[in-house]
Amino acid sequence: MELLEGEREEILNKVNEIVKGYDDNRENLIPILQKVQMGIGYLPLLAQEKIAEALNIPPVDVYGLATFYNQFRLNPPGKHQVQVCMGTACHMIGGQIIMDSFERRLEIEEGETTSDREFSLERVACVGCCAIAPVVVINDFVEGKVSPLRVDGIMLQLQEGKEDSNSLEGEAEDKSPEEKNERGNQE
């Protein structure tokens, strides 16, 4: 994905701030990547290059790690992160149907982010809440016993919430600068 205006600066600042807290021991690579992802939301190539520089290792080693582990994302997450559990218990009771329902509603495939960066959709192997399968994790909140119709309900809730936080009109074109502001405020 293309970097948004001003994102470059933000990435560089964030990475610099994080790597300062670590010495250049290879053992720190995964914790640094985790922290950077927590800060920026994903691991843009630019960030990976800067981390490689700080740890004095080739960028390919960082890329190798970022692509090996499921936790790391190379694309920006949506403002709302939808994770569908695909553990055994969830699979048996229709996890795939829930995933299909989200894909259809969001018009993206698993692993992608909507072009307005509002939603991202991921599969997770198991969140360990098998007793309430099928499970979906929305913005870190675990929701159990989800059905295809509940997916519609969840989407409605999220979209309503979205309207609340934006202006009443909710103009789509304004999203990027707005998002940037929000992020700036959080820091």
């Binding site: 021991n25 290879r26 053992e27 720190n28 690579l29 995964i30 914790p31 990547l33 985790q34 190798g64 790690l65 090996f68 582990y69 499921n70 936790q71 790391f72 192997a125």
Partner: peptide
């Protein structure tokens, strides 16, 4: 505490150790 980064193969002991060392598991 080392936080894993999501790789099933890291349940295998030598892969897990690689991961702690900051390498591909």
């Amino acid at each position: 505490v080392k936080e894993g980064a999501g790789a099933f193969v890291c349940g295998e002991e030598t892969a897990l150790l690689m991961s702690i060392e900051g390498k591909r598991g």
